[in-house]
């Protein structure tokens, strides 16, 4: 935010300098976005090829690049939505519930994601609760 404040000040005093700075900033933003895009592309292509292989299919390169773009946009939308849901809940940290809310429209996706979220929660509980269980184990269940 500090660099943003500095930019604001230069805009007031010197227009040309700010334009140059703005262009550089825009370029930096673009290159970092492309880098993230490339990293996502690796994962997308691997996943898509594995799935296609199971179906005995090949995926053309044009479809691959389209699918990558789509996945990146999808991730961006997911980020925006999850942040809004977290803010609505008065949190600064995105929780599993927020992601589940983003996926609320599709029941099947929601069910499978909810199962995964529950397994995460369980594995987290197991750590500290194992000791407690051992202590309770002496007491007969019936």
């Amino acid at each position: 935010m500090e660099s943003g404040a500095g930019g604001e000040r230069t805009r007031d005093s010197d227009g040309d300098c700010d334009m140059e700075e703005y262009g550089q900033l825009q370029q930096q933003l673009h290159s970092s976005k492309m880098r993230l895009h490339d990293r996502l592309q690796v994962a997308t292509i691997a996943t898509a090829e594995r799935t296609a292989h199971k179906c005995g299919m090949k995926v053309s390169s044009r479809v691959m690049s389209a699918l990558t773009d789509l996945t990146f946009k999808f991730a961006e939308r997911l980020a925006v939505d999850a942040e809004l849901f977290a803010q609505h809940a008065g949190r600064k940290k995105v929780d599993t519930d927020d992601v589940l809310l983003v996926a609320r429209r599709n029941e099947d996706v929601l069910a499978s994601l909810r199962l995964l979220a529950q397994s995460f929660a369980k594995s987290k509980e197991k750590g500290p609760e194992k000791k407690r269980k051992k202590a309770v184990a002496d007491v007969p269940d019936t």
Binding site: V99, L100, A103, S112, L113, K124
Partner: peptide
């Protein structure tokens, strides 16, 4: 956990 869930969603 939310991050892992997002990965699975993608």
């Amino acid at each position: 956990d939310a991050l892992k869930l997002s990965c699975e969603y993608l």
